[in-house]
């Protein structure tokens, strides 16, 4: 199988969490001979090649971050320019986001089913997972902990050509957290997580409080 992959993140490749997810996913996917070509929607210079590859390939995979409950505007802009397929192409998606609960990604997932049809492709499922905000802020074992599990999903996709397996469905994790966990995480949001975010901001040269109101 040969897979045409689009990284649908508007963020440049070096900073893209989706790209780091794809790195591990494609590693697992190619173990047993599946080949792939990957493009970045953030680089408009690649759009002509992407349109050509979209027309020529029958196994298509778009990985994307959730942007305001659906797909990013830049990815829509690109997809507005492709010719819908008229062959027996299949399209699958990797949908990732920052919030940790599965429920946060379901509205986006619902649209991806519609999108597959609008692009003239059979829908081969969506791999849904959140809690990925920190990928670009960590390295080594900490990053591996988040991204390496995608390698197993790459193997699943290579074996089945879709994300229909139970393993892929379970990969999402909890739809919502149970009340005791919410209580605990809620405390973390007000303490350790706040401190961590303030530190990242400081490292980026931020000189204002993170709840600063420039337009009040």
């Amino acid at each position: 199988m040969h897979v045409f992959i689009i990284n649908g993140s508007p963020r440049i490749k070096s900073q893209s969490n989706t790209d780091k997810i794809l790195e591990q996913f494609t590693k697992g996917m190619s173990e047993n001979g599946t080949s792939f070509e990957q493009y970045e929607v953030s680089d408009r210079k690649q759009w002509d090649d992407m349109r050509k590859a979209f027309a020529e390939n029958k196994n298509i995979l778009i990985a994307l971050p959730l942007y305001v409950e659906c797909i990013p505007g830049l990815l829509i802009e690109f997809l507005e320019t492709v010719e819908p397929k008229t062959d027996d192409s299949r399209i699958a998606f990797i949908l990732q986001g920052g919030f940790a609960e599965g429920i946060q990604l379901r509205c986006g997932e619902e649209y991806l089913k519609i999108l597959a049809g609008k692009l003239g492709c059979a829908y081969a499922g969506t791999l849904v997972k959140g809690n990925n905000f920190s990928i670009r802020f960590v390295e080594g074992a900490e990053r591996d902990k988040i991204t390496v599990p995608y390698g197993e999903m790459g193997r699943e996709y290579a074996a089945k050509g879709d994300f229909s397996s139970e393993k892929c469905k379970k990969f999402t994790g909890p739809e919502v957290f149970p009340a005791p966990i919410r209580l605990l995480v809620g405390i973390l949001f007000k303490t350790a997580a706040k401190t961590g975010l303030n530190k990242i901001a400081e490292g980026w040269g931020c000189t204002r409080p993170l709840d600063y109101k420039p337009y009040s």
Binding site: Y67, V68, C70, I71, P72, G73, L74, I76, E77, L79, E80, F99, A100, E101, I103, Q104, Y111, I114, L115, G117, K118, L119, V176, F177, A179, R182, V185, G186, F189, A193, K194, L197, A201, L210, D211
Partner: peptide, 30 residues
């Protein structure tokens, strides 16, 4: 493609500065 076109969606995608990076739970969701 069955949804807002990119010009419409960009208006919503660019809305993020009205939120802070801090998180909380409202009901059962972050």
């Amino acid at each position: 493609l069955g949804f807002l076109d990119h010009k419409g969606k960009n208006i919503y995608d660019r809305i993020l500065p009205i939120a802070t990076m801090y998180l909380k739970f409202v009901g059962d969701q972050m």
